[in-house]
Design a protein around this nucleic acid. Structure first.
Length: 746
DNA sequence: GGACGAACTTAGCACCTCCGCA
DNA sequence: TGCGGAGGTGCTAAGTTCGTCC
């Protein structure tokens, strides 16, 4: 990915102009969006599907149907026990494992027969600030009604964040804060009955509130480990019953069983509503979905649920509507549940099915690039971009959302054309992540894009004005049931990973193989434009590693100088090139390195001294009869530093090195070789760090790369799966771990 | 056939934990 | 052994897709 893309990310606004509504002059001849019945293969959900379930002993064992017809899952039926050695902690012979992925996937959109759960956990009620912690307005402390104080606290706790510095965030927060203030009472000058009107954000001083919450955070951090452990245990115990549910009698983990706490909406990019008050959700707003004839969880005392449903065609356990965008929030099962595993499995099988159609689809869209009908030509061009660049479909967005686009919603200003066939894409995609790519495209694609940008179109106009995702997807369904634009992303990601893995030679250490695996993963992440913010400390830590490399090279320089000092004839034996780097340092450079090395050594001694004294202090408090270290002790310890300083100065002045009598040329050469190894590995890790600084590998690993590829790699290359999948991922992908062998192919 | 909404997947960030290095 | 930082996890925003309604 280009550096430019990264830089632009920092200011997520990018340089992309917002589409003026006046030019929303679309002649979108959208085809019918009326859809037929869901294809069986897609609407493919079923009951009795748990991964690590605790079987309900009261129920008869479920009948297990083994698939034979579907070649895609043939591997699943042929797993040998000994191949399960790297199965992520799941016992190979575990009879408790419900192997739903080996069962008949025929389905009728029923997700469960019985469902039992304990509802959701609500966030704790607001705790008032201590009396001495107040918002200051115009320099005066003010008393706020408790409702308004809570909102002020939301902002006050985060004044050190980038969000809080965003003017839109501030304006939205302040607007809602004033509204809460007007409905809940008025602000008083603290300790008086005098009202004060809060009208200007700039006159608000949240620093006391911030300091209070910061203290709370630090106090929590500083708790003794035993207390932390106890608190965690208490929390776990209180939450235990919400963490699991029973789906068709099998115990399943629940995902987000906590209702989202109130706060300020943290919209990404230039979201017009960022900073608005996200209201506290009351039980009266929450709808539960649960099986019939089971105990309905009690709402919190004095409250009622909005509704209790028994809809077994959906997988959510609870839902409510949030107040900012009117979106529905759901409580689902956890990623490691059978229900989610099943839909993951189906997603990847769908992508694999595309293999059988992709050539035909490509041939067709290549032909259609010259179609007379504009809509067909646009569709073919969009298909080309989705297939080659892994773009998202790109649905239309409203004015009350951040201005981001995907393929179908690309606008004039997002695509720059440089003849003969170079296209520059520059737009903000999902999460306002900048997509910046220069690509050489087919001549006809280039010509088409020129046509789609022709006058009278200008900035703000859609490139694909005859197209939207529903038209595109409807066309795709004619090739394969359930095929949508999104499937191409999964297909291309997994296909790329397979190709990359095929190129890795099965040699070297486990660590080397993991590096190669991650490099393959990185190719996929780059394809999908998965980025992450460069850590604030990144530059600093890179500089630190660079210094470390420089010092290693300097150490090598000294060793080689010593060899020459011991035996000036050595270049004849080892070759002149061996000593070439003894000329790499001039006096200025050496001085700088010496200074750094001496300072660090001094710092180390002083830190150790302080630490030792702290320990002694603690021992004394515990009643031990020990004396604190004195300034003289420190002086004594610092002698090592003084000696080092003198030794280096002498080297600089005379060019002569102090060599211990026990040293020999052979020993020094061995040390040089060791340093070479260290320099190489440090440089490699630095490169890895820099290559990965802006690329997020996890998103593609979690969502796009068929996990069976990773399992195959683990087994074929004898790399423990723990090196590729975290514990959570091993749980999420239990189905893949149990169904892929070393020969599995996407 | 467009608007809207439900249901689900995909996504990055923030916080926490734990491991390796000095 | 203590500390910093990498890696892991939870949270929730932001997408896609598809069905319904008018």
């Amino acid at each position: 990915m280009s550096t430019t893309a990264v830089e632009a990310r920092k200011s997520s606004s990018g340089n992309v102009s917002k589409k003026p509504k006046s030019v929303a002059n679309k002649a979108k001849t959208a085809a019918s969006t009326k859809r037929g019945t869901k294809p069986a293969s897609q609407a493919n959900t079923k009951k009795n599907n748990a991964v690590k379930e605790e079987p309900d002993k009261t129920r008869p064992a479920k009948k297990r149907k083994v698939l034979k017809a579907d070649p895609a899952v043939d591997n699943a039926t042929e797993v040998k026990q000994e191949e399960l050695v790297v199965d992520g902690g799941l016992k190979a012979d575990d009879e408790d494992i419900h192997r739903w992925w080996e069962e008949d996937p025929n389905d009728h959109s029923v997700k469960w027969e019985t469902l039992e759960h304990n509802g959701v956990i609500f966030p704790p009620p607001y705790e008032k600030l201590p009396d001495d912690v107040k918002l200051k307005y115009d320099g005066k402390k003010v008393d706020l009604p408790v409702e308004a104080e809570e909102v002020a606290g939301f902002y006050g706790a985060m004044i050190n964040t980038d969000h809080a510095k965003n003017p839109v965030f501030q304006a939205n927060f302040f607007g809602d804060f004033k509204e809460v203030l007007s409905t809940s009472g008025r602000a008083l000058i603290s300790g008086t009955s005098k009202f004060i009107e809060i009208e200007s954000f700039d006159k608000c001083d949240f620093s006391d509130i911030f300091a209070y919450y910061e203290d709370q955070r630090n106090a929590k951090k500083a708790l003794p480990p035993a207390v932390k452990k106890r608190l965690k245990q208490e929390k776990d115990e209180a939450e235990e019953k919400y963490k699991t549910c029973y789906l068709d009698g099998r115990k399943q983990p629940v995902g987000n069983f906590r209702v989202e706490p109130p706060g300020l909406f943290r919209g990404r990019g230039q979201h017009p509503k960022t900073g608005k008050l996200k209201a506290r959700v009351q039980p009266e707003q929450v709808t539960l979905n649960i099986g019939k004839d089971v105990k309905i969880p009690e709402p919190p005392a004095g409250h009622n649920w909005s509704e209790v449903r028994h809809d077994n065609t959906v997988s959510w356990l609870a839902m409510w509507k949030e107040n900012i965008n009117g979106n529905t929030k759901y409580v689902f099962l956890s990623q490691s549940s059978s229900l989610k595993g099943m839909s993951d499995f189906k997603k990847f099988e769908k992508a694999r099915e595309l293999k059988n159609h992709v050539e035909r689809i490509r041939n067709d869209y290549r032909k259609e690039l010259t179609d007379e009908k504009m809509q067909v030509r646009q569709r073919a061009t969009a298909m080309y971009l989705i297939d080659r660049l892994a773009l998202r479909a790109g649905g239309e967005k409203g004015d009350d959302e951040a201005d981001t686009v995907g393929c179908c919603s690309l606008r004039y200003e997002h695509v720059d054309l440089q003849p003969p066939n170079l296209v520059t894409f520059d737009f903000l995609g999902k999460d306002s992540i900048r997509y910046f790519q220069q690509v050489e495209v087919d001549e006809q694609v280039f010509t088409n894009l020129q046509i789609f940008k022709k006058e009278p179109k200008g900035p703000g106009d859609d490139i694909f004005d005859r197209l939207d995702p529903s038209i595109l997807n409807k066309h795709l369904q004619s090739y394969m049931p359930g095929l949508t634009a999104k499937v191409f992303r999964t297909y291309n990601a997994s296909h790329t990973m397979q190709k990359q893995l095929d190129q890795i030679p099965n040699v070297g250490t486990v660590a080397e193989k993991v590096v190669a695996f991650n490099a393959a993963n990185r190719e996929v992440a780059i394809l999908c434009n998965h980025q992450r913010t460069v850590a604030k400390s990144h530059e600093q830590s890179v500089a630190k590693i660079e210094e470390r490399v420089e010092e290693l090279v300097w150490k090598k320089y000294r060793l080689k100088k010593m060899i020459l000092q011991l035996d000036p004839e050595k270049p004849k034996v080892l070759g002149k090139s061996y000593f070439a780097d003894t000329k790499a340092f001039n006096k200025t450079k050496l001085k700088a390195i010496h200074k750094r090395v001496v300072e660090r050594e001094q710092e180390k001694v002083e830190k150790k001294f302080a630490r030792d004294n702290e320990k002694i202090k603690a021992d004394r408090e515990a009643g031990e009869d020990v004396k604190l270290l004195t300034k003289d002790d420190l002086k004594e310890r610092l002698k090592v530093v003084t000696n080092l300083k003198e030794e280096l100065q002498k080297e600089l002045d005379t060019g002569e090195f102090e060599i211990k009598s026990s040293q020999t040329c052979e020993k020094l050469e061995a040390q040089v070789a060791k340093l070479d190894d260290r320099i190489l590995s440090t440089r490699l890790s630095l490169k890895d760090k820099q290559d990965n600084s802006t690329v997020a590998l996890s998103t593609s690993k979690i969502n796009y790369i068929d996990p069976r590829l990773s399992v195959m790699f683990s087994k074929k290359f004898e790399v423990p799966l723990e090196k590729l999948f975290t514990k959570t991922l091993r749980e999420k992908f239990a189905w893949a771990i149990h169904s892929a062998d070393k020969d599995w192919q996407f």
